[in-house]
Design a protein around this nucleic acid. Structure first.
Lengths: 144, 144
DNA sequence: AGAATTAAAGACCTTTTTGTATTTTATTAA
DNA sequence: TTAATAAAATACAAAAAGGTCTTTAATTCT
């Protein structure tokens, strides 16, 4: 549905949100270990998130990654578009440059409906909301 | 949503289905021209489709690509899984190896619903059905 | 039989994605 | 002020996706 980078990013952010609740700021090594992703690649993804302003970080001893007060409810759609591009929820199913209700590809109507469901979900769900599900035990990030 | 290869494949197949209705068997050059895709890359995709048994071809003068009687209703889901792999409609939104209702990722329930809509659509729609929409003028393959 | 035509096959090449390793910079604590 | 710690930056590299080009094999028509 989307790239591994996006998958890893969402998992990493959920892990960080959970850690923050325990007043901890995990480093990228801990995050990668916690969500079972390649360490340096995870570091790179977290850097991108910080640069995009979706996540905060502090260097040095006691440092790590965290969500500032201002970014307490990070929508999944923001994470997705940060990596997939802002047109992610606009593209045509058959890759046509011009595809809209006036000039539709043969899949247009049906595809728009599905794509919109995805967008609605991504706008509704937040990293912190998903973290709550893990906390409550109704979902998992790792086998177990 | 899926790769360019899959997008090109669907468009190519629709073009071929339309040509076949006019009792013509287009070659890969004509197909590529007709759907605005890279010529040799299109040829490669058509080869894959023939090898997969989803499409037929004849070499030599008067040859080209066509659908045999047996494959008159080619489901989109068959085209998609031919290129994306048979697990395309099974994968986890967050890339977890084990993700099901017993051991769900925090997006599982919502994602399954969307993924299933996509699968239902892909099982319902056929290349020939989509070709009909083009023929009837209610959809396009190219700017127009 | 020979020329023309067309898909098949295979060797490449480029770009993007995914992943690794090393060095640098900022911060803290002793 | 020095040592330890941790993110940032940078450079590489492997793999996959996307794309091109040339040669070969099959078929038809003359």
């Amino acid at each position: 549905m989307w790239s591994k980078t996006t998958e890893y990013a969402i998992r990493a952010l959920i892990y960080i949100a959970l850690s923050n609740k325990e007043s901890r700021r995990p480093g990228f090594r801990e995050v990668a270990e916690g969500i079972d992703t390649p360490v340096q690649f995870t570091a790179k993804i977290l850097q991108t998130l910080v640069r995009s302003g979706l996540l905060s970080s502090i260097r040095g001893k006691g440092g790590g990654f965290f969500f500032g007060r201002n970014a307490e409810d990070l929508k999944l759609s923001d994470v997705i578009t940060a990596f997939e591009g802002k047109d992610y929820f606009i593209g045509c199913a058959l890759g046509l440059k011009e595809c809209d209700s006036n000039n539709p590809c043969p899949l247009h109507d049906e595809f728009v409906e599905i794509r919109t469901s995805l967008e609605v979900m991504a706008n509704r769900e937040t990293v912190q909301g998903l973290a709550l599900k893990i906390e409550g035990g109704s979902a998992m990030l790792k086998r177990g």
